[in-house]
């Protein structure tokens, strides 16, 4: 289509207005690109620079902030805390979302209603969901009332701890991940599945040999996105967690440096560490994705037994 356009435009090249129209392309992009550069790339670079100038900014560049972070157990621990939330939650979210999306790939009863309801937590945002979780899962909430009625001796503590944050993250990210994967999986041509079935594949063979290799790249990206979001968890960790203890995540540490200690240099350093953590997660997933795709094809060629 583009080459067609170019070919059709060629004989008209002498007509001036047409050429002006072509030239307008890059100019239309300048304002938005400039905005992202000035308001996103520049602050990011400035943050990295600032993180390397500890104290009041005298003297040269130094990694003192980073050293201080990793040597202070109270700070360094946040990485572990964040990972202990992000990794299990991401695995759980993606596995469940993948299963549900896979089973629902050819539609399900009340599909439109269900997907619409699932948009709610995404649209309402973390703060409202956190407040609702504190109520619903709280010691006096409906869930614990139900459990007590069912014969449980004491209410279970589901809020203001690790579990609360896990619930909050799951409620937020499961619908997100599910809708993403549902769009992806239902886009796969059903004829591929039919072809495999007719050729002798049982439902499990269809999944393992045909659909999983096609789904895996999308699932990997979904995994990466959910992990990155989980790694930056802030409001849920404060509102339904224990921000001074079990759920003091790295985002909380960065926020406290910036807005409670007013140490922008150290805050920037922590933000950089947070970004690096997300990047590492992203890279691991993308590397795995490459391997996944490769072995998917390789085992097929080997001709399983």
């Amino acid at each position: 289509m583009r080459t067609e356009a170019a070919a059709a435009a060629a004989p008209l090249a002498k007509v001036r207005p047409a050429r002006r129209l072509e030239g307008a392309g890059p100019a239309l992009l300048v304002p938005s690109a400039l905005y992202v550069l000035v308001m996103f790339v520049y602050p990011f670079c400035y943050g990295v620079y600032l993180s390397l100038r500890p104290g009041k900014g005298e003297g040269g560049l130094s990694v003192a902030n980073y050293l201080a972070f990793f040597l202070d157990p109270w700070q360094a621990r946040t990485i572990w805390v964040t990972l202990s939330l992000a990794v299990p939650n991401t695995v759980l979210t993606v596995l469940l979302a993948l299963t549900v999306a896979y089973v629902m790939r050819r539609g399900i009863w009340l599909e439109r209603t269900i997907t619409t309801l699932l948009v709610l937590p995404i649209a309402l945002g973390t703060v409202l969901v956190a407040e609702g979780i504190n109520g619903f899962y709280g010691p006096k909430g409906w869930l614990n009332q139900l459990l007590l009625m069912a014969g449980l001796p004491d209410p279970i503590r589901l809020t203001h701890n690790y579990t609360g944050v896990m619930i909050a993250l799951f409620v937020q990210h499961f619908p997100f991940c599910f809708l993403m994967l549902l769009g992806y999986i239902s886009g796969i041509d059903p004829a591929l599945e039919h072809a495999a079935r007719v050729l002798g594949a049982r439902p499990w063979d269809v999944f393992r040999r045909v659909l999983w290799p096609l789904i895996a790249p999308g699932a990997a990206i979904a995994f990466a996105l959910v992990f990155v979001m989980n790694f930056g968890v802030f409001p849920s960790a404060v509102l339904v967690g224990q921000p001074a203890g079990a759920t003091r995540t790295i985002a909380i540490a960065a926020y406290q440096q910036a807005f409670e200690h007013y140490d922008m240099s150290m805050a920037s350093a922590i933000a950089v560490i947070m970004g690096a953590g997300q990047l590492v997660g992203l890279i691991i997933v993308l590397l795995l994705r490459g391997r996944l795709a490769a072995t998917g094809v390789a085992t097929m060629g080997a001709g399983k037994r």
């Binding site: 602050p43 943050g47 930056g232 802030f234 910036a258 933000a271 947070m274």
Partner: peptide
């Protein structure tokens, strides 16, 4: 370039942005 601000969580770039 356009995708990065959507991919990277806001807490990560929000702090340097706020500083600036």
């Amino acid at each position: 370039l356009y995708f990065l601000p959507l991919l990277i969580p806001q807490m990560t770039y929000g702090i340097p942005l706020a500083t600036t």
